[in-house]
């Protein structure tokens, strides 16, 4: 390849897309380096799919530019399409075709020669563990296996850039773990962009994360920095058997507790504790309950919802770089 390794594999500058009057994304800019796995995190309708469709050349932006491997997605669309592997969210497949036939077709329309095609088809079948389903009709495969066929076609032509829209949606938990490991393995060799609305997934798979919300970039960071920033917002849910009034006051008096709300479930009090500090209050709470001789039935940190994370990140006082 003629490209310089120093230039970023994906460069996006001020990308804006309007659907009629409504902006799907506004002034999105980011770059992805060669071999990097970038997570695209955002709730539904945040603009993830729109951005990916622009990058793959499926639709043009209203304004702004995007370059993949140095090629402009609008002016050099065919070149761009040669360099990408794409897995759309719905995993569209020809249901009436067999797995091998389908992969062969996808290889052909990407201009792969016979030998390369045959070698790669057997490779991707191994990678995606489709060995037992070579000749099965795609329409008869389960959702998880279709997902694998979708991934297989995306990596078939050894693309430099892999674009995956919600690759783990709608498949069972074991397959989710497998898929994540698979994607992790693509880093280094391929440059990967994947979108998701699951926060832990990003920290597991990606080296860098872009959070977008309502079409705008809210934060760009490494996943561990992000969790750091989001710390101190932990919430705990505790089930305690004991006199509720006492429990309430005792919990409120603990240092680091901001607020306690209470809901009863059967004869047990369920307390929702909002903490302010960054320290872990779980030990303090369990000690307190033991000292008072109450019963500690459950103690669970509650994860923030994506919406809350966005609120947090868009708060004016948060330390955005």
């Amino acid at each position: 390849m003629q490209e310089n390794t120093d230039i970023p594999m994906i460069e996006v500058e001020d990308l804006t897309k309007y659907y009629g009057e409504y902006p799907a994304i506004e002034n999105i800019s980011f770059t992805v380096n060669r071999g990097e796995i970038l997570g695209f995190l955002g709730p539904n309708a945040a603009g993830k799919t729109t951005t990916m469709r622009i990058l793959t050349g499926f639709m043009p932006p209203t304004s702004g530019t995007a370059r993949i491997a140095g090629y402009d997605v609008v002016d050099q669309s065919l070149e761009v399409r040669r360099h990408i592997g794409y897995l759309p969210e719905t995993v569209p497949l020809y249901t009436e075709m067999g797995v091998i036939d389908y992969l062969d077709f996808m290889g052909r329309i990407r201009g792969m020669g016979k030998e390369w095609r045959q070698r790669r088809i057997s490779e991707v079948i191994d990678i995606c563990r489709l060995g037992d389903y070579r000749t099965s009709l795609i329409g008869k495969l389960s959702k998880g296996f279709r997902q694998r066929v979708g991934i297989a076609q995306a990596i078939l032509h050894e693309p430099e850039v892999l674009i995956m829209d919600e690759p783990t949606i709608g498949i069972d938990p074991i397959q989710v773990v497998e898929t994540r490991n698979l994607i992790k393995g693509f880093g280094g060799e391929h440059t990967v962009i994947l979108s998701t609305h699951i926060l832990p997934e990003v920290s597991m798979v990606c080296q860098r994360v872009i959070i977008i919300h309502e079409g705008q970039v809210v934060a760009v960071d490494r996943p561990d920095n992000l969790s750091e920033r989001l710390r101190g917002t932990e919430r705990l849910e505790v089930d305690i058997r004991g006199p509720s009034a006492d429990v309430m006051t005792a919990l409120r008096d603990l240092p680091g507790v901001q607020d306690v709300t209470r809901a009863d479930r059967d004869d047990v009090g369920v307390y929702r504790i909002e903490t302010t500090g960054s320290e872990d209050l779980r030990e303090a709470i369990s000690n307190l309950v033991l000292q008072r001789g109450w019963g500690l039935l459950r103690l669970q940190p509650i994860q923030m919802s994506l919406e809350e994370i966005f609120l947090r990140l868009t708060e004016p006082d948060s330390d955005r770089e």
Binding site: L78, P88, P92, L93, I109, Q153
Partner: peptide, 14 residues
């Protein structure tokens, strides 16, 4: 309907 057009149109095919 299947959405396969999206893959076809993002393959290097005119």
């Amino acid at each position: 309907k299947l959405g396969t057009l999206e893959l076809l149109m993002t393959a290097p095919v005119r």
